[in-house]
Design a protein around this nucleic acid. Structure first.
Length: 323
DNA sequence: GCCCAGGCGCTAC
DNA sequence: GTAGCGCATGGG
């Protein structure tokens, strides 16, 4: 469905103009990723640092720390701005082999949605009554995605119908209980729990963490589906359209319209994903237009007429405007 | 006690 | 297809 973009793989296609240049220093532990235009790392980090409870990454003094597991061993990364054209990716764990370096570069590229050319978004937004201010104030902000499908679905289910602060507390308890831990500077970083481990848990185990019985059951079911191979990001991306992917997601218990849209937006990166039922989106529009009440879903569709294929970005910028 | 928060499933019509 | 309702948690 979506053209795969290879990074750091030397093929005849490397002359592709948007292809990121990935270089490595002599030690092979630090890589440099060329940035696209309209990229503001500090603004992305601000979004990522919005909750102190976030257990899966750490933002500290302009650096982002992330634990990843791409094959057997956990990898700890330190990512920071090298200069205005490049991001540096440093391996704090052992020196990576070449194939891992390429995978990590690709992961970071995808994570910060660097493949998207934002020019037409800003062209559209500058005359849009809802977006014109935030497109300026958040200029360079990239959509921070959730590359892992299991994490994206779990996070969406956790966040259903509760306030975001409590959602982060649930996520923290979940990750600290079941995720692999790594210590850095007296702080803990965790891998998001695996579907294999979560599939084996009971509802009562999650209720101890103050998950509702329903949310617990939903998450266990998703874990089982992924573990069995009946559900994967690849399967969803191979559907003939994002609409089909959304429909497939909605077959899961606990995944309704909002959750499916959310996963399409943050994980599958459907540019037209648009969670119109989202109260955060509604409140952000209300604030931008100084409305006295939250807009209805029909009103939101009217406001967004010119956002075609930029709905996901518009939503992401609007979410940021609430921070 | 009431309403709200990054909703969903079930039922009845 | 959709309107109404129960679920069930923390914060203000």
């Amino acid at each position: 469905m979506r053209k795969e973009i290879l990074i750091g793989v030397k093929t005849s296609k490397t002359c592709f103009p948007d292809f990121p240049v990935e270089k490595w220093d002599d030690t092979g532990t630090t890589g440099f990723l060329r940035l696209p235009e309209e990229f503001d790392f500090a603004k992305c980090l601000k979004f990522m640092a919005r909750s102190p409870e976030e257990p899966c990454h750490l933002v500290n003094q302009g650096s982002l720390y992330k634990l990843l597991k791409l094959d057997h061993d956990p990898i700890l990364l330190k990512i920071q701005l090298r200069n205005k054209n490049a991001l540096s990716i440093e391996f704090l764990t052992k020196r990576p082999i070449r194939s891992i370096r390429a995978k990590v570069a690709k992961y970071v590229w995808n994570w910060f949605d660097m493949e998207t050319n934002l020019k037409s978004f800003y062209r559209m937004a500058k005359d849009d009554i809802v977006l014109k201010h935030i497109a300026t104030s958040y200029y360079g902000l990239r959509m921070v995605s959730i590359p892992d499908l299991f994490e994206a679905i779990c996070w969406a289910i956790m966040g259903q119908h509760i306030n975001l602060n409590f959602a982060y507390i649930l996520k923290k308890r979940f990750v600290e209980s079941f995720g692999e831990r790594f210590r850095i500077d007296n702080r803990n970083l965790y891998l998001f729990p695996t579907p294999e481990l979560i599939a084996k848990q009971s509802v009562s185990r999650f209720k101890q963490l103050q998950f509702t019985a329903k949310k617990s059951a939903y998450i266990i079911e998703v874990a089982k589906k992924i573990k069995e191979g009946a559900l994967s990001k690849k399967i969803l991306l191979e559907k003939d359209s994002f609409k089909s992917a959304k429909k497939e997601l909605m077959r899961l218990h606990g995944v309704g319209k909002w959750t499916a849209e959310y996963v399409c937006l943050r994980c599958l990166k459907d540019p037209a994903a648009f969670p119109v039922d989202d109260v955060g989106l509604q409140n952000a529009i209300k604030r931008q237009l100084r409305l006295t009440a939250k807009p209805t879903v029909d009103e939101i569709y009217k406001f967004s007429r010119s956002w075609k294929n930029w709905e996901a970005y518009a939503t992401f910028y609007l979410w940021n405007s609430l921070m």
